[in-house]
Nucleic acid binder design. Structure first.
Length: 671
DNA sequence: GCGGCGTCAACTTT
DNA sequence: CAAAGTTGACGCCG
């Protein structure tokens, strides 16, 4: 419990430790950069360290040039263009299995569990809109490809979803009809896998490095890419294990997604149906008895061995109907199995899986949170059903189930920042689109402002982080349904403000949050630097300052443009004179953002967004999900640190001891 | 025994 | 909603 102090040993170094930056970028900046924008200059040369041409200067820390590539992880030489899958090590896991029971029905039939090398030339043919750079090398070592880590999993997840969002954005702009070619998930995973950009390929019984119970996934392909469940469609994943005498097949993971009539009511027990025999829900399929082969056989063998099985629970996502979310629910053991007659009379295997004790709640938590959402009064420790007193369109609970504190210090809830005319930007930019702004419509001046792209894709998910996002606003005739109005719409996610163990009050959500989803903006009083200095000078203890001039770790969120043959320059700033600088104090007035704590390993990032109010454009600070965030995970972002040369005095202002507890903790953050 | 290639099945996805 | 689409397992062959 108190061990947290250990994480906070104070490093004497400046927090920006480039050597820790995992983000490996190809040397693409050394070659001429062709802009993909229709508006931007056609040809720009820049080296990673600058100098940058006019209008391209990275005045934001997250645009700092890529750090020098780390020690070349086993980079394959050109002379060794081995197919990626040949990296796979032989599946010689023993798993401590003793003697194998010979089973005539199968054991003898199976061939040795040697690694199969799939065809490396298998690629999507028609959906490659742009070819990935041929010489692109994924920032994954061959050993990480087999056995991953938190870092490797994060990296793969980040790039998969980033690519997917970008491909989806391109589809939007080309008006690709829904259904057919719109499988951005498949195309994204194709690009990644063709470059060996994946992890945990080695199959294993039990936990997967870098994947925690409760982690959520929005696509089956995501689970393939990180090695949680290697089957792209199949519900049962298994492999052949070499025992002392002979090999046997063992299940490693299952996905229960409601296709069969699984009984998934109990949070610790799952009755899972075997595969095959056409026993699924799909209509018009012949049904026959399921056979004890493939996954069914593997489950049977796992049961006999009491071998652990990873369970992934799929469920429909209440927030975005039609989509499915997968939750890794930890390890189960099969207690018994039997054959049941389906309605059609066909035999179906049933396996009763029981959750191993002592694991963190995952699926169970979902069920609980679902109840709280429907009836906030059922939430233990509820103090206020709506902290916002109706200022937001949805309510935010105030909860303390930790100690007796009755609530945070007094403040006035306000959903938007208090801008004054003086903080307005010089230029307005409203478009003239009569309906909704169409992605890809370069006649739309708002889209042109965003480098030719509508910054959001389906469901209001931000595609990339950039210097500035320009949203449509009141002065545009496109109307409130325009897809380029997200942050201005206020919070849409059900959240609670809760008492943390050691960091005061915090913020977390009752819903799963997809990476790139808008969470909230930072509301408060907009103040200038002189006012900030004054506050510090007068010893006013304002712990609710948001200041863009703090030095922030470059946020690593965007996809790898080289995988799409793009150069990745952010040339979106048509107004180089617009300095996205802002200081907001949420001490007296503010919204839920003031409760978001700092973390050195955050799951939320901030992004400057502009929209117009009363004929003037104003800058806002909007927060978006940095990764998929499961319900009840605390929302945190990186506060950054006050730069050394800051003329805002006061040691207390400059540094605060960090309690984030992350293994990557820098020790301090600014406040 | 290894590796290439064809086929098959599968609780997907829009 | 039906059909396109993927991976990995398996089987055959040289």
């Amino acid at each position: 419990m108190q061990g947290g102090a250990g994480f906070n040993s104070v490093p004497s170094t400046v927090p920006l430790d480039k050597s820790r930056v995992l983000d490996v970028k190809p040397l693409r900046s050394l070659k001429p950069i062709f802009s993909t924008s229709h508006e931007a200059p056609p040809y720009v040369c820049a080296t990673p360290d600058g100098p940058f041409p006019l209008g391209f200067s990275p005045f934001y820390p997250f645009n700092t040039p890529p750090s020098p590539p780390p020690p070349p992880e086993p980079v394959r030489s050109v002379a060794d263009p081995a197919p990626i899958r040949s990296f796979r090590t032989p599946g010689t896991e023993s798993n401590g299995l003793g003697t194998m029971n010979r089973d005539a029905s199968s054991g003898g039939r199976r061939r040795p569990g040697r690694p199969r090398s799939g065809r490396s030339d298998r690629k999507a043919k028609k959906y490659h809109i742009v070819a990935p750079l041929a010489d692109y090398v994924a920032p994954i070592s061959s050993s990480q490809r087999e056995d991953g880590s938190k870092e490797a999993v994060d990296l793969v997840m980040r790039h998969f979803d980033g690519l997917r969002r970008r491909l989806s954005q391109l589809d939007d702009s080309k008006e690709v009809p829904s259904g057919l070619a719109r499988r951005s998930d498949l195309r994204a995973v194709n690009l990644m896998m063709s470059k060996g950009f994946r992890t945990n390929m080695r199959k294993r019984v039990g936990a997967v490095p870098g994947i925690e119970i409760g982690d959520i996934f929005f696509f089956r392909m995501e689970m393939c890419a990180v090695g949680l469940h290697a089957q792209s469609m199949g519900g049962i994943d298994w492999f052949n294990v070499k025992g002392d005498l002979e090999e046997e097949t063992l299940a490693v993971s299952i996905v229960s997604s409601g296709y069969y009539n699984d009984d998934a009511e109990d949070k610790d027990v799952l009755v899972y149906s075997g595969q095959g025999g056409g026993a699924g829900l799909q209509k018009g399929r012949q049904t026959s008895d399921q056979k004890l082969e493939r996954g069914n056989l593997a489950l049977d063998r796992s049961m006999r061995r009491s071998s652990q099985i990873r369970v992934i629970r799929g469920m429909s996502d209440g927030t975005t109907p039609g989509t499915k979310i997968y939750v890794y629910d930890g390890l189960y053991i099969i207690q018994e199995s039997w054959i049941e007659k389906a309605e059609s009379g066909a035999g179906t295997f049933k396996y009763k899986l029981v959750r191993m004790p002592g694991q963190a709640d995952a699926f169970g938590l979902w069920k609980m949170v679902g109840k709280w959402k429907e009836d906030p009064s059922s939430r233990p420790g509820l103090i206020l059903p709506d902290l916002t007193s109706g200022a937001e369109t949805i309510s935010v609970c105030l909860v303390n189930d930790f100690d007796n504190e009755k609530g945070p210090a007094y403040f006035t809830y306000c959903s938007t920042p208090k801008h004054s005319k003086a903080f307005g930007l010089l230029q307005t930019y409203g478009c003239g689109c009569q309906k909704g702004c169409a992605p890809g419509d370069l006649n739309c001046s708002c889209i042109r402002k965003n480098n030719g792209d509508l910054p959001y894709t389906t469901g209001g998910v931000l595609v990339i982080q950039k210097q500035l996002v320009y949203e449509c606003s009141a002065s545009c005739p496109c109307g409130p349904l325009c897809k380029n109005r997200v942050a201005q719409g206020g919070i849409k996610i059900r959240m609670e403000v809760f008492k943390t163990k050691n960091r005061g009050w915090g913020l977390r959500a009752y819903e799963p949050i997809r990476s790139g989803t808008f969470i909230c903006e930072y509301a408060g009083d907009i103040i200038d630097k002189a006012r900030l200095k004054q506050k510090v000078h007068e010893g006013e203890n304002d712990e609710y300052i948001f200041d863009t001039s703090r030095v922030h770790e470059p946020v690593k969120w965007n996809y790898e443009p080289a995988l799409l043959g793009e150069d990745g320059t952010d040339d979106s700033s048509e107004d180089p004179e617009v300095q996205p600088q802002l200081i907001i104090s949420a001490n007296d007035i503010g919204n839920v953002a003031r409760f978001m704590n700092h973390s050195c390993e955050p799951n939320v990032f901030w992004q400057p967004v502009v929209w117009e109010e009363g004929g003037q454009a104003f800058l806002h600070i909007a927060f978006y999900a940095l990764k998929h965030i499961p319900p009840m995970a605390e929302l945190t972002y990186d506060y950054g640190v006050v730069p050394k040369d800051s003329d805002v005095g006061g040691a207390a202002y400059r540094k605060r001891k960090c309690l984030c507890g992350s293994s990557k903790c820098r020790g301090y953050f600014g406040l």
